[in-house]
Design a protein around this nucleic acid. Structure first.
Length: 602
DNA sequence: TTAGGGTTAG
């Protein structure tokens, strides 16, 4: 029978002089504590050998755990699995540590799973600490099959009643394509210990654009009387951002204040982004100004907000201020900055910044940055220069870039060129519906109705459909969604009547329908009818019906706003004396008294 | 000595 050592013995051991080996180990551990890059690791490696500690599990574990340097992690694990280290020194803690390093490092998630496999092959059993890391790695990879396999192991080893494991499992399923249903099933069946599981599920909905479901689940969370925390708030703010639900966002802000939810940088950033993308960019700016610890995400969010609102000059000056503040721009912040230049027609400045990326900051432009440049040139009408730029690009242009060019060709009358590029694109990407829509729109502009019909037939034959345009509007704490020609609303007849009345009213003020945007080859009057059922017109009509005169109207469109709706909204803002704020897929349009903030440049 | 959910772009 084992006996615990007596108190005297314990005290005795405390007073024993520390052994030489132990002292060397302690020394090595404290040196490792200061180690945060590969060169330092390499220095220490020889030290480890000199002291004969290359097989010491404590030292090995520390060796892998303290650096976030990608090279160091790779190096450390290759050292551990080299012939210098005897495998019988490996233990579960060591594996957990390496798996953790890989699981939290983007691009190395697969290595985490390889290590998990290796661990099993060494006959070392995972413990309850292993699975959150492994599941995190699965979430990062996003393959549902893999998730199911790991889920099986969790059950087999009996860790399926552990709160950390189950919460991460919900997160894992919600991160895998096609896994959200499994995530919800798991969430419904497990005990709800605290806000973590709720946040994982709410966050999962937001990740897949199911923001209404996220808000709905939050209401259930309130009924279940589980207090949301900072992370829940961040997820919900993200949902508001997606839905353009400013009122709900304001409610969350008030809740955060009232309940003293700790305001971390992440939460502040989510608030800034929400206000900017829900239309109140000035509020976003004032929040940003009152922040004490701004990071690159805060700056990027506010710069991007300015860009979306067409306030390019302010975005540029914020970028300069950021640099002065000592915050080094990253590739994401350059996307915001270049978008700002593009949407405000700052061509020369945009070019300068693009070249400064490599020269000043050593950032190699990615395909998105090249995309911004093509957009910048195209919006300014410099179609030929854009084409030259694309042909000289050091990386292969992607279809997004070609589509930007095609849209520009159509907008600036280069129809033949547009047709040529689109045909080429369709050869390479024959299943992408928007290529056919672009070609069809070019034919509409050319009045080539026969060719247009042909394209439509090809689309029908291939089973393609144009992504339906939809518009959301938040009124009196409810979110309404309209799609083109929507008859699902209980008051659709009155709404349609209202749209027709508006059409007559604005026609008297000089509005002429721009019918070339209509996809279908139908006669002029019907084309006007089809345009009149566009989702944004339905939403605006609904808002005019439901809100008192003078109330500003805010709507969110899922696609780029069409030329005709843009023109009609200008007339509506003047005729009905309403400020109308439209967020489309790319930016904001603020219509006041017949003028849009985008200066017809979008 | 080891654990869970979160912010910018695309």
């Amino acid at each position: 029978m084992n006996h615990l050592p007596s108190k005297t013995k314990l005290f005795g051991s405390l007073h024993k002089p520390i052994s030489k080996k132990r002292a060397a180990e302690q020394n090595c551990l404290s040196l490792l504590q200061l180690c945060n890059s590969l060169p330092k690791f390499l220095q220490l490696q020889s030290h480890i050998f000199k002291l004969g500690l290359q097989n010491n599990p404590l030292v090995l574990t520390k060796f892998t755990s303290i650096s976030s340097d990608l090279n160091a992690i790779t190096y450390a694990s290759s050292f551990i699995f080299s012939p210098y280290v005897e495998p019988h020194f490996f233990d579960v803690f060591l594996f957990n540590t390496i798996i953790r390093s890989y699981a939290v490092t983007s691009d190395l998630k697969h290595n985490a799973l390889c290590l998990y496999g290796k661990m099993l092959s060494y006959g070392i059993w995972p413990n309850k600490f292993t699975y959150p890391f492994v599941l995190k790695a699965c979430a990062g990879i996003g393959e549902l099959k893999l998730g199911h396999i790991v889920h099986g192991s969790v059950v087999k080893l009996g860790f399926h009643d552990d709160s950390h494991v189950l919460n991460t499992m919900v997160h894992m399923y919600c991160s895998c394509g096609g896994g959200i249903e499994y995530g919800r099933k798991m969430f419904d069946e497990m005990p709800k210990w605290n806000s973590v599981g709720w946040s994982a599920m709410i966050g999962g909905y937001v990740r897949w654009g199911l923001s209404s479901e996220a808000v709905e689940l939050f209401r259930e969370m309130q009924v279940a009387r589980v207090a949301p925390d900072e992370v829940t708030m961040v997820c919900l703010l993200s949902a508001c951002t997606d839905l353009g639900a400013l009122e709900l966002g304001k409610w969350l802000e008030a809740y955060i204040k009232r309940e003293n939810v700790p305001k971390s940088a992440v939460l502040w950033n989510a608030l800034i982004d929400m206000f900017a993308k829900c239309g109140d960019v000035d509020k976003a700016l004032s929040l940003f100004r009152s922040m004490s610890q701004r990071n690159i995400v805060s700056w990027t969010s506010v710069i991007d907000g300015m860009a979306m609102h067409g306030r390019g000059a302010e975005a540029v000056s914020l970028f300069e201020e950021m640099k002065k503040d000592g915050v080094v721009p990253d590739d994401v912040s350059f996307i915001g900055l270049l978008t700002a230049c593009s949407h405000s027609g700052l061509v020369e400045q945009g070019k300068g910044y693009f070249y400064s990326m490599t020269k000043e900051f050593g950032i190699s432009p990615k395909i998105e940055h090249y995309g911004c440049m093509v957009d910048l040139l195209c919006r300014a009408g410099l179609v030929q220069e854009a084409l030259d730029f694309v042909q000289r690009m050091p990386i292969k242009p992607n279809p997004v870039i070609w589509r930007t060019l095609i849209t520009a060709c159509r907008a600036h009358g280069e129809l033949k060129l547009g047709e040529k590029i689109t045909k080429e694109l369709i050869k390479h990407e024959p299943t992408h519906d928007s290529n056919y829509v672009l070609l069809s729109n070019i034919y509409a502009k050319m009045f080539s109705w026969e060719k247009k019909t042909m394209i439509r037939e090809v689309m029908v034959k291939k089973g393609m459909r144009k992504v339906p345009g939809s518009t959301m509007i938040e009124l009196y704490n409810e979110i309404y969604e309209f799609v083109a020609g929507d008859k699902s609303h209980s008051e659709y007849k009155i709404i349609f009547q209202m749209v027709d009345d508006i059409g007559k009213e604005i026609s008297r003020a000089g509005y002429i329908a721009s019918t070339s945007e209509v996809l279908l080859d139908i006669d002029e009057e019907d084309k006007e009818g089809a345009l009149n059922r566009h989702s944004e017109k339905l939403a605006i009509a609904f808002a005019l019906m439901k809100t008192p005169p003078g109330t500003p109207i805010r709507i969110v469109k899922n696609l780029r706003v069409c030329e005709d709706c843009h023109s009609a909204t200008k007339f509506i803002s003047k005729t009905y004396k309403r400020e109308i704020l439209v967020r489309d897929r790319n930016r904001f349009h603020r219509f006041i008294d017949g003028i849009c903030s985008c200066k017809d440049f979008w």
